[in-house]
Design a protein around this nucleic acid. Structure first.
Lengths: 229, 229
DNA sequence: TACAAATGTTAGACTAATCTAACAAAAATA
DNA sequence: TATTTTTGTTAGATTAGTCTAACATTTGTA
């Protein structure tokens, strides 16, 4: 059984090596910064986690998760995101309030609790921030990226980037009410002029195809490919 | 902010001095036994909690909670029992499974979480074991004790004691399936012979008034008096 | 009441997680 | 390439919570 602290180190390492970018290793200082501890502290823990065969680490080298370490880290992330979803959907927390409490709840040890929570929430694939919730077997469903104009009517998606970085475009994006990771619903597409009607945070707008093809989105409802971790 | 350990000591002291019997103090060995630690360990913590003005304690004397300590302990009990109720009612845990997980969940720090959970559960007064859940203001609704023959038809109650301690009677109690603290439902009362039909753990039985007046119960549905703590 | 048993305390040690300060290695750059 | 900067490590100290072993006090009883 891992301590809360050990779990946090594994989670931080996962976030640095897997989720943020696709570099496979993280440095000691970097990890320490992520966790809000001093490098000396992180260094001790790295040695301890290597002893437990949860990470790969060599003196003066970068660190990465072993298969077992990755599995444990993914379990923590899964719990975190399921709790966030529960707090948001069943207890009326706002999306910015859920994280802090989920940081505590993610360390509760009870496989049955997490299974049942997953069931209660109807096996969600995304948390309130739009992040992917790993399945019980540790797989992550990664939604394919596309642009807003390719999205089907009736589907939900979220913006994860833009193709045009001009000030004019970005100001327009802002005016329409689009924010990174905020859910977007595609309401309709006018046959006459191809205008796309969307709803963001309760606010409805119509955007042109020209605009829409510069908004990179991930679709929550579309076919997804599994990323085994 | 109290540590998980400190909270556990306060809760244990509450259980020893308030819930089990009505003696107002507990000894160091007794407290240590309750928590599964050695007396030396408990002794250190007693000094620490006295420093924080959460308990009354003097060298070689018994310990008891201060007003502030009692308040903190009741909060922990409240959280424990609300979580038990949630696990039982919303996640389909059996009543014997809830305790272990609630021991972990009771230490989650988030007033909002507990308020919302209370609301979700519709402000319950009893947990799945039939124990009283303190209110948000720290009051406990104490159900009045009476005997089974005084209970109304349709009400739920639980056995908390017996008046007759003879072997004959106790064996009969056992045969009917009655256990301490197990929910009993009063199904009907025959007008002809006054036999009381009850249901315990799915098992239906009929008992005589003579039998019923020797079973001490608390009624979950009846009027209750508030015990401010 | 005196002694034995029960209860409670102290001292010293251990582990986990943290820190600071000094030092070592690797990387960047002049 | 030599030097500076960044990065990483080690040593030693600290805090919380625990232990064992020895000692002290209180309680109960012969």
């Amino acid at each position: 059984m891992l301590s809360t602290t050990e779990e946090n180190y594994l989670k931080a390492l996962l976030q640095l090596t897997f989720e943020q970018e696709d570099k496979a290793e993280a440095g000691t200082n970097e990890l320490a910064a992520q966790l809000g501890v001093k490098p000396a502290t992180a260094n001790d823990m790295l040695k301890k986690l290597r002893e437990k065969q949860l990470i790969h680490y060599e003196k003066y080298g970068k660190s990465s998760l072993t298969a077992e370490g990755k599995k444990r880290a993914v379990e923590v992330v899964r719990k975190h995101r399921l709790w966030e979803t529960f707090l948001y959907e069943h207890l009326g927390f706002t999306w910015d309030e859920v994280h802090e409490v989920a940081e505590q709840l993610e360390h509760i040890q009870s496989p049955k609790l997490i299974d049942r929570l997953d069931q209660l929430l109807n096996y969600p694939s995304f948390d309130p921030h739009g992040d992917v919730i790993p399945t019980a077997s540790g797989e992550m469903k990664i939604p394919a990226k596309k642009t807003l104009n390719e999205e089907q009517v009736g589907h939900q998606c979220k913006m994860v980037g833009v193709k045009d970085n001009s000030a004019t475009f970005l100001q327009y994006v802002d005016k329409v009410g689009l924010r990174m990771n905020q859910p977007i619903k595609v309401l309709s597409r006018q046959p006459y002029d191809e205008l796309i009607e969307i709803e963001v945070n309760g606010l409805k707008s119509s955007v042109s195809p020209r605009f829409a093809e510069n908004i990179v989105i991930v679709c929550n409802d579309c076919e997804i490919r599994m990323k085994s971790i």
